[in-house]
Amino acid sequence: MPLKNTITGRAWVLGDNVNTDDLHPPSFFSMDSKRMKEGIVAGMKNLNASEEEEIDTQGLIIVAGDNFGCGSSRETSVRALIASGVQGVIARSFARIFYRSLVNLALLPLVCRTIQAVVQPGDTLTLFPQEQKIRIGNDRFFDTDPMDLHFHRILESGGLIGYLRREMSVESKEHGRGI
């Protein structure tokens, strides 16, 4: 499964060192996707949305600063972003466990160091993962850092479980030949 050609969404802009407790408060740990999604709304209110604001998480693309997703490894923070319809995550740098979780669950992470200076909340963003570009609106382009081949392969497999299935099928074929 190749990476999507383009992904479009609205910018949700965050600062530096946003941790997973900020993003998805621990009290929302749950296997229930409704409860999980409520956690993202609570996180948005904690971070930068007003109490009264009507929040629509569908189609958001996060633009964060440095060290995004630091803190707890709870995978529910990424699962909740996916359940809430978030389409992609851009940051100047990522905390390592959070980055791995985004890749493992196939929510596209992109490292970009320049967009933070100009992006405004709600801007329409288009991600071009193959070309390593991000576009704001119709004409402002930003470069993203190349993704490591290992993570690229996991994303192409639809996530780490897909990658594992692929490895297992190769192994069983090889094993079959041996017999």
């Binding site: 707890s72 490894s73 709870r74 995978e75 466990i97 979780s101 493992n104 996530g159 479980i161």
Partner: peptide, 24 residues
């Protein structure tokens, strides 16, 4: 768990992962 780094006090490489990495 991110605090798996604790075990490094014994002189090993100990690092945290999230659930799906652990499944792998």
């Amino acid at each position: 768990d991110s605090h798996t780094t604790t075990a490094g006090a014994l002189g090993c490489l100990a690092t945290g992962m999230a659930s799906t990495d652990i499944l792998y």
